[in-house]
Design a protein around this nucleic acid. Structure first.
Length: 605
RNA sequence: CGGGGUGUAGCGCAGCCUGGUAGCGCACUGCGUUCGGGACGCAGGUGUCGGAGGUUCAAAUCCUCUCACCCCGACCA
């Protein structure tokens, strides 16, 4: 752990300038516009951090911009410290480069395309692999210039299908994107680890609780990609992690390992049971008084084949335990099911002779392909649909009542309590917001854009590339999502728009209050502290509730009453009650509190 | 893109069913009182009723089309 002194020396805030609320711009709302659903979105609107201009497009108001700048400053400082070099690439990029890389075709409608007055086509960049690779191919000629890591903090545009949650999933956003170039894969791996460590430092310094998780590496495979998630119950992603080891993965990717125990022997004969109107596993299980895990549900899928083969299975029946859910990404990895859709009711009736709700794997014809999840494959005496309406089958056993499945595969989402794929213990599940992603790109863009350098032997060689993103503006929303209460935002110290707010009750009326407040304000400014003096001509209730909504982490209230006893009130935003401190010690108390909050706070968990 | 919903003052909403002077709360302006937890009194301003057509003597209200925004499903920082 670094010392407070060192961190203070690294202070990355914008220059400290005198800031009186009466001359700043604070615009709070009692009620949030009805469009806002997510708490961070509501609070950002209410606190006047952002204002909407169009769908997924927001103006950053002065207070919000201060937060963005603080996030940027920390990211920039740590990137520089890690050896990356900042540059800035255009937001508007010519189509040619994108056609050369193939992404002009591959990207789809998320890529905003438009033409200039000469009818030349351009894109609004969602990321900048093409441009940076173009720079590399023009500028990097020799292995002697490697490795090099360029990054920028730049506005991005993605024409999202459905922008929502304010700045969390906007169309225009600010991202730090970095790209590294290497002579060989080993050096890329070295930098990748360097970035992994750097990202951990960044999120720690931002004061956030986060977790790095293994991510999909697509066609590349290996351990080439990690996502960084801010932990929050409202997060859109689910993370599976093992407290007994460092295993962590997005649930979409986490393997559900095969159960160790072999399938028990059959204990019951197969029997038909009446289940009128009971189409859900939960209903059938409670009707029969059995565990949900004894139920097997069947999901009917239809492959969307490029060419229709007449001998191909008409329907794929994917079997899952009643307490498990289908993982569509895993299903897509089944050979022959690369593209699928859910079967229509008509197709299900045609293939199985029964409407959905009562379908099952027993007695199905040769044109139905049966895939059992690993957990289903080791279940005996299970209950499943009978392919007859209002009827289920009990005591069903593989090999006796129906053939063994055509294929046994991992096709479900992991659930809490599943064994960790690394064998270290049971998994837990947590929600997260993806704020960072690092990736070993390898040679994909270097190949497409013919970007080479001369190696030691004088041979033209394609670069090994890595890319590394951090969602700057998303972090602002994620920080609020993770840190708020019923009164408003509770900023982590390092990214608060102001670290300290002081206000004098009756500042406009009481000479004594004004003198004490101004004096403390000057003292704090002299310490280089980012402080807001709230001298607005408002009633105390308005000022105090505003400061709480804004989430300023440290607050000092000075009033006649306290002054009479030589005291002022200090309260951390996260504290439940104020503390009285002698006026002459107020500055010291705050400086100490700031030092403490830098040292505690967040960490990778 | 498919399904659902909403557009009325800066924000939150009522009015629409059953056509007939456009309203309420907050915010805003002026004056006064008040001032340690979103004050009170008096006075005041505020609207192309999302837009375009249509029906009608008359449309916020009924009909058609359109646009915008929000919510639920497949992607990503």
């Amino acid at each position: 752990m670094r010392t407070a002194g060192k961190l203070a020396a690294l202070s990355s805030s914008p220059p400290v300038i005198a800031m009186r609320a009466s001359r700043f711009f604070i615009s709070t709302l009692k009620e949030a516009p009805s469009e806002a659903e997510l708490v961070s979105h509501r609070l950002m609107l209410r606190a006047g951090l952002i204002r909407r201009l169009a769908g997924g497009i927001y103006s950053w108001m002065p207070l919000g911009l201060r937060v963005v700048r603080k996030v940027e400053a920390i990211v920039r400082e740590e990137m520089n410290r890690a050896g990356a070099i900042e540059l800035s690439m255009p937001v508007v990029q010519p189509a040619e480069l994108w056609q050369e890389s193939g992404r002009w075709q591959a990207y789809g409608p998320e890529l905003l395309r438009f033409s200039d007055r000469h009818d030349r086509e351009f894109v609004m960049q969602p990321t900048s692999e093409e441009v940076i690779t173009d720079i590399a191919r023009n500028e990097l000629r020799s292995y002697r210039q490697l490795p090099v890591h360029f990054y920028q903090i730049q506005t991005k545009f993605r024409d999202e299908r459905r922008p929502r949650f304010g700045v969390m999933r906007g169309r225009e956003f600010v991202m730090k994107d970095g790209y590294s170039f290497h002579a060989d894969h080993a050096d890329l791996v070295r930098e990748y680890q360097n970035m992994h460590d750097t990202y951990c430092r960044i999120f720690t310094r931002l004061g956030l609780r986060f977790r790095p998780v293994a991510a999909d590496t697509g066609s590349i495979g290996g351990t080439g990609s990690h996502e960084f998630h801010v932990l929050a119950d409202s997060g859109e992603d689910s993370i599976a992690w093992c407290p007994a080891s460092d295993y962590a993965a997005n649930v979409e990717l986490a393997e559900a390992v095969a159960p160790r125990a072999a399938r028990p022997a059959a204990g019951h004969p197969m029997s038909r049971v009446d289940t009128p109107g009971l189409t859900r596993c939960e209903d059938v299980a409670s009707h029969l008084g059995i565990e949900l895990a004894q139920m097997v549900k069947a999901i009917a899928l239809v492959p969307v084949a490029a060419s229709a083969q007449t001998d191909a299975p008409a329907i794929w029946l994917l079997l899952l335990r009643g307490d498990h859910a289908l993982n569509e990404i895993k299903a897509q990895k089944l050979a022959g099911l690369e593209n699928f859709r859910f079967a229509s009711d008509g197709e299900i009736v045609a293939a199985l002779g029964c409407r959905p709700g009562y379908i099952g794997p027993v007695g199905v014809g040769p044109r139905v392909r049966v895939i059992a999840d690993r957990a289903v494959a080791v279940t005996a005496d299970f209950v499943c649909g009978a392919n007859t309406e209002n009827t289920h089958l009990g005591g069903v056993n593989w090999g006796r009542d129906l053939p063994e499945p055509h294929e046994i595969a991992d096709i479900r989402n992991v659930v809490a309590g599943d064994a960790s794929p690394d064998g270290a213990g049971p998994l837990l599940i947590q929600r997260g917001i993806e704020v960072g992603h690092i990736f070993q790109l390898r040679r994909k863009y270097a190949q497409a854009l013919k970007a080479t350098f001369l190696d030691v032997a004088g041979k033209a060689t394609e670069f090994e590339m890595g890319c590394y993103g951090i969602g700057i503006t998303r972090i602002v929303a994620a920080a609020i999502e993770q840190n708020h209460d019923e009164r408003g935002i509770v900023w982590p110290d390092p990214i608060a728009p102001f670290r300290v707010a002081i206000t004098g009750l009756g500042y406009r009326r009481s000479e004594r209050v004004r003198a004490a407040t101004d004096a403390l304000y000057e003292q704090l400014l002299a310490q280089g502290i980012d402080v807001l003096l709230d001298d607005r001509d408002e009633r105390p209730g308005v000022i105090l509730t505003d400061l709480e909504l804004l989430g300023i982490p440290h607050r000092v209230v000075i009033g006649e009453r306290g002054l009479a006893a030589g005291q002022v009130e200090y309260q951390a935003r996260s504290a439940s009650a104020p503390a009285l401190v002698p006026l002459e010690e107020a500055c010291k108390v705050i400086v100490e509190a700031l030092a403490r909050s830098v040292n505690s706070g967040a960490a990778a968990v």
